[in-house]
Write a protein that binds this DNA or RNA. Sequence first.
RNA 1: GUGGCUGUAGCUCAGUUGGUUAGAGCACGAGAUUGUGAUUCUCGGGGUCGCGGGUUCGAGUCCCGUCAGCCACCCCA
Length: 437
Amino acid sequence: MFQAPTGTRDFYPAELNRLRYVQDAWRRTSINHGFEEIDGPTFEHLDLYTVKSGDGIVSELFSFERFGGEKTFALRPEFTPTLARMYASRAASLPKPTKWFWMQNCYRAERPQRGRLREFSQWNCDIIGDDSAQADAECIACCVGALEEIGLSPNDVRIRVNNRRYVQNMLRSAGLDETVMDRGLSWLDTYHKLETDAFVKNGQAIGLDSDQAYKISVTLAALAGPNSKWPSDSMLASDAAPGREPIYEPLFKALAAHGLREWCVLDPSIARGLAYYTGMVFEVHEASGAERAIAGGGRYDKLIEMFGGPPTPAVGFGMGDVVLSLVLADKGLMPKDEEVAARLGLNPDALVISNGTPEADGAVAGVVAELRRAGLHARRSYKTTKNIGKLIQDAAKMRARYCVILESAESATVKDMGTQGQEGCGVAELAGRIARR
RNA sequence: GUGGCUGUAGCUCAGUUGGUUAGAGCACGAGAUUGUGAUUCUCGGGGUCGCGGGUUCGAGUCCCGUCAGCCACCCCA
């Protein structure tokens, strides 16, 4: 027997329905928030990915050459480079802001773990051409909208928000050299997984003196991780004080305006690993810290330019299906298989069964065909039993709206599976009787 | 890529110090009660015990390798 390749999944009907359930929430939310769906190729030139992330990325990509060809390609590990490429090539004719969403599979050649596979479904939303804090908040609002749509509450998940410019200022005033700013951000990002001593020691390794590194760890201890919360009024007031660039104040004001106050906290240790984020950054985590990050994103104002477009501000986020599904399962929020199918509109309008007489048996196929021609989802039973009770049980299990019991070639009993009421009906009137009103 | 733990039916798991033809529940299918959704009973299909070697008269059980899953590192676009 062949096995599926490492880190990939087989989707049997129940599993695929669960994926669709998640994707439906993503799509509905995107559309309600005014985003338009786009897509690009599954694979790109390898260079598209190395431009942004350097050659180090190659070992984490599935790359290949066409037999006898010269170009090297790679399966997309993410969508942002494609998006930047697509935007850059039509930038002049696109509206500002442009709001795009995308929902397809990505491929990464990493070692799989819980919450991390080599092929997964990802959802991206991006607002391009708007550098305001309102756009930042609108982006987070869409992300939260999907979480809420799928049944998660502020008790279940936390949106950890930060701004790179703020912590860059903090690092600068602590004496960090501008040339190692990237390493400084990475250092902050490791705060939550290190003991204080190790954290301070690593801070010294990038050139901070131990007092300054320790001071930063004290600041983070008060504000980050489990202690992170919505910023106090006094903190926002001092952030917006005259003579300095306000960073947190406009962001949190915009988040509040979008009704996100109970979802979001300020966590200065969130820096994100990617080099290209320039301002607001955020991550979504399960509230108690279980599982990996559910989603992450931020502002990337230089990226479009890097891909050959005009200087264009942008903000966006990505969410994968893997961790989200684990969190839903952990919390008992993934409905049962039948319920998922029903919510996807996959339950039949009618199950047609026979009363067991040869005449009715012979009429089943024709009745099913007639109902389908009328645009209804009609099924027949494939069971051989003539036990009506068992067949009705079958109808209940597939959540059919009606069970049609053929009594003869012309007449039927129609049972409403919801109300349990039933009545006689001519075969010719069945489609009209069952049609959704 | 490095290290650790685990692999028995579709799922959850039994399987004695190595000993005949590897079991149960659920799920799936058929039948019984001659027509109404959670009942009961009977029967059935399904496993090269992840795969390959080795030790042994004999391996699901012990040893080695390999593959896969999980966990930590790495990375997290």
